[in-house]
Design a protein around this nucleic acid. Sequence first.
DNA 1: AGTTGTCAAGTTCGG
DNA 2: CCGAACTTGACAACT
Length: 322
Amino acid sequence: MTLFRLGYVAMSVNVQNASPSQTMTYKRYQQLQDEEAALRKLERISKSNLHNSLRLLKHNKAHGIHFFRLSSKLVPLATHEDFSSWDYLSPIKDELQEIGRFAKENKMRLDFHPDHFVVLNSPKKEIFQTSMKVLKYHYLLLHHMGIDPTHRCVLHLGGKYKDKEASLERLIENWAYIPQGIQKMVMIENDDTSYTLEDCLYVCEKLNVPQIFDQHHHIANHDDSRWQDHWERVVGTWSHSELPVKMHISSPKSDEDYKSHADYIDPVMFLDFVQKANGSTEQIDCMIEAKQKDQALFQLVQQLKEHPNIVMESETTFRWKN
DNA sequence: AGTTGTCAAGTTCGG
DNA sequence: CCGAACTTGACAACT
């Protein structure tokens, strides 16, 4: 019997004034006359983002949530090319450590999902290099939190460039140029336009990378609609990980706008997954990607509680019983 | 106080 | 071939 655990992404609609993604744009930075003052402001924003991240973790603890994706925008401009000499880490070491300690004390699973500018299979060398820089930034944040960076960063396979097979192979070639520490950090998720679950599984098995199954993306973009026929392979990609299997759950906004995320989670669609995946492995961590963030999680829990086949094990974990 | 447009980054698609 | 859409929250600049 599988234990299912719920988590959510980056920010809360319940905790007010707690953005972990405050920013300063490059344009704004350039407008400021005093460069030193501008850098101090970037540091203040970063500290505030980390402080708010910790507040969110405390909120999560209070509600029994032990699975959370951190914002990738914790340090604005950290990976911008004009900031390569800026030591953004020294001023925030204490804050990073505090987050890591709190997560460890409360047995929380934390990870990242860098945005779509990280493209490992780009034919352009400079884009690959920029991607490395962004991944290194994530690596360093995790490292200074005292969190083992292994399997903490979700990525997509990249672009198709009008030749999917060649582009997929290019990722495998590029992989050899990725430092080992960063390789170990990566998990790969099927996307809703280019690479299907089966494409990703091929790569995951070849490179020994855990597969993140996104149910919504899979329905929007698949070779074989029956994901359950490939589920054993998905679980297999996690066999060498210390962490439980992880998947993404979201619901379509509408039939016309199918790929966009809805405010809340459709329990029927989610429970279809739960029922079919039940028994396949000890634990599955389900990351809720919904506009209403933690509120979508709370609403889903309320709906699960009323379901005859669901037994809650804690505030955010449950099992399916026939 | 509430609304609209802009923002570092990449890729895809429509005209 | 170029510009808009994709997706997204924050913030500046407006009404």
